[in-house]
């Protein structure tokens, strides 16, 4: 038996919105410690990793490790039927080919039940190594979204450069070019507005903006985002989910032919 109740059901809605343009099917890997999802886009260019600790759910019950394969289209349709303040309970019995969703309004007056057929999804798991990054930049998530959106007006690729002076995003195309510089903030009222730059080594990488713009669909999940960069390695874009999980996107850099 697997059962997990998320008090803030809107978090699940936001998670699905964040990935539905990148991946079509996902496997929920459920264990006693929590739920994880690893999925790649059809071109195998980027990778999504969601990790949710069991402490984010009340109750959480997972008697045996179980993998639940779901089509995102169906999941998206069902989850959209929940109100933002509903709690969402996910239930699956061993040996059945269905997953159940129960939505409950805060006062308990309205409950809705939906069922989705499980799918057998053949997904390849990649081992993500522990990486010591050259630079780790934490910034407001809406700021990163804005930069990616603005830069994609100019070109298909964005150059991200971290130095002791800060982080620079640049793009160029037929129309012209643009550069945006961010420096570490000194005095900021709210922690979530802070730009924090940890620099071990200067780093200079190029990424496809198409994917970064997909990643920024996760902006509603968190006021902050962390970019972890290392030369010749995939970028890791992390959105924390409350204090119990995270959504990470990995994107390989574009490299010279």
């Amino acid at each position: 038996m697997f059962e997990a109740r998320l008090i803030q059901g809107s978090v699940l809605k936001k998670m699905i919105d964040a990935i539905k343009d990148i991946v079509t099917d996902i496997n929920l890997d459920c264990s006693s410690t929590g739920i994880s999802v690893q999925a790649m886009d059809s071109g195998h260019v980027c990778l999504v990793l969601i990790e949710l600790g069991s402490d984010g759910f009340e109750p959480y019950r997972c008697d045996r490790n179980i993998t639940l394969g779901l089509g995102l289209k169906a999941l998206s349709v069902v989850v959209r039927c929940a109100n933002n303040d509903d709690s969402i309970t996910i239930k699956a019995q061993e040996g059945t080919d269905n997953i159940n969703f129960v939505f409950e309004s805060p006062n308990g007056e309205k409950t809705s039940q939906f069922e989705i057929k499980l799918m057998d999804i053949d997904s390849e798991h990649l081992g993500i190594p522990d990486t010591e990054y050259d630079s780790v930049v934490k910034m407001p998530s809406h700021e990163f979204q804005r930069i990616c959106r603005d830069m994609s007006q100019l070109g298909d690729s964005i150059v991200v450069a971290c130095t002791k002076d800060g982080i620079q995003f640049s793009a160029s195309g037929d129309m012209g070019s643009g550069k945006i510089n961010l420096r570490q903030s000194s005095l900021v009222d709210k922690e979530e507005d802070q730009i924090n730059i940890e620099l071990n080594d200067p780093v200079h990488l190029t990424f496809a903006l198409r994917y970064l713009n997909y990643f920024t669909k996760a902006t509603p999940l968190s006021p902050t985002v962390t970019l972890s960069l290392k030369a010749e390695s995939p970028l890791c874009v992390t959105y924390p989910i409350g204090d119990f999980g995270s959504m990470k996107f990995f994107l390989a850099p574009k490299i010279d032919d």
Partner: peptide
């Protein structure tokens, strides 16, 4: 020009 390499070249299959 620059090209995009797939994830397989960075992360090993489990």
């Amino acid at each position: 020009g620059k090209t995009q390499h797939p994830m397989y070249e960075y992360f090993l299959k489990k």
